[in-house]
């Protein structure tokens, strides 16, 4: 088996007649964290939506573990080991934290070990144990993001997609969330694609980085190298 967990090849995507992504190609090596950074409107969320199956690419392919999933419905991708934390968490606000977590294990393959997994996930995020009966809509921003990550982990994914986990969070809380994700990726052997506007912080946690600009990847490389790149520093890190 190839060491690439996910391969995106020549992908284009958009909404209706509006084309947002053009000829996107990159791979996610197994167990690595890949950061896709760019300014607001660069196409980061569209990229993750296409990988998650919420929109269908207009061209190109998405391959997961060697299988073409370009046209696989979003709800079937959960069963293939893919989970996404959407921007803002998108928790079900009128359901309790526990119910949100239960729904994370909705896929048939995940249901058998639901109780054990719930316990494991609550051990990872102890605050959720205290808040489990509270409505998700009443959580604070940081708690909401933690709950969204925990919910995605309920299906025991192998590939985690994170859409701007720092949105609405303080720098301190962002640091905490990113540290948690890094720790989880190492502990659970997860492959991760994280898209972010906070370039400095996310390149510090990632193995590989891609810079997205107007729907095209304009720079790629090891995250450590990109952090040192003068042009990247000036354009995206404000240094």
């Amino acid at each position: 088996m190839s060491d690439d967990h996910l391969v995106i090849a020549g992908m284009g995507a958009g909404y209706g007649d509006v084309s947002v992504l053009h000829d996107i190609s990159f791979a996610v090596p197994r167990g690595k964290i890949v950061a896709v950074v760019g300014v607001n409107g660069a196409g980061k969320t569209t990229l993750l939506s296409a990988v998650a199956g919420l929109i269908v690419p207009t061209r190109g392919t998405v391959t997961l573990d060697g299988a073409d999933i370009t046209r696989t419905a979003a709800h079937r991708r959960t069963g293939l080991g893919l989970a996404m934390v959407p921007e803002g968490g998108r928790l079900f606000p009128f359901m309790s934290v526990r119910e949100n977590l239960e729904l994370g294990a909705y896929a048939p393959a995940s249901r058998s070990g639901l109780v054990e997994r719930m316990s494991e996930v609550m051990d990872m995020f102890p605050i959720l144990r205290d808040r489990q009966d509270q409505l998700a809509g009443r959580l604070s921003g940081g708690e909401r993001q933690m709950c969204a990550v925990a919910r995605a982990l309920m299906s025991r994914p192998q590939l985690l997609l994170l859409d701007e986990p720092s949105v609405g969070l303080s720098p301190l809380m962002t640091e905490k969330v990113l540290a948690t994700v890094t720790d989880l990726a190492a502990r659970e052997g997860l492959s991760v694609i994280i898209v972010e506007q906070r370039v400095t912080e996310v390149l510090a946690m990632a193995d590989i980085g891609h810079i997205l600009d107007h729907g095209r990847i304009v720079r790629s490389g090891l995250a450590a190298d990109l952090r040192k790149d003068r042009q990247v520093q000036e354009t995206y890190m404000g240094l």
């Binding site: 998650a52 199956g53 919420l54 419905a73 979003a74 709800h75 079937r76 959960t78 069963g79 989970a83 996404m84 959407p86 998108r90 928790l91 079900f92 606000p93 009128f94 359901m95 119910e99 239960e102 729904l103 994370g104 909705y106 896929a107 995940s110 249901r111 919910r151 995605a152 299906s155």
Partner: peptide
């Protein structure tokens, strides 16, 4: 029931429900 919770989830956010594996 899990199916009932899925119905409520779809009512609140159908795309998030899709990401949970719910066939909307």
């Amino acid at each position: 029931t899990m199916h009932g919770k899925a119905i409520r989830a779809v009512a609140q956010d159908r795309n998030a429900a899709r990401l949970m594996g719910v066939d909307v």
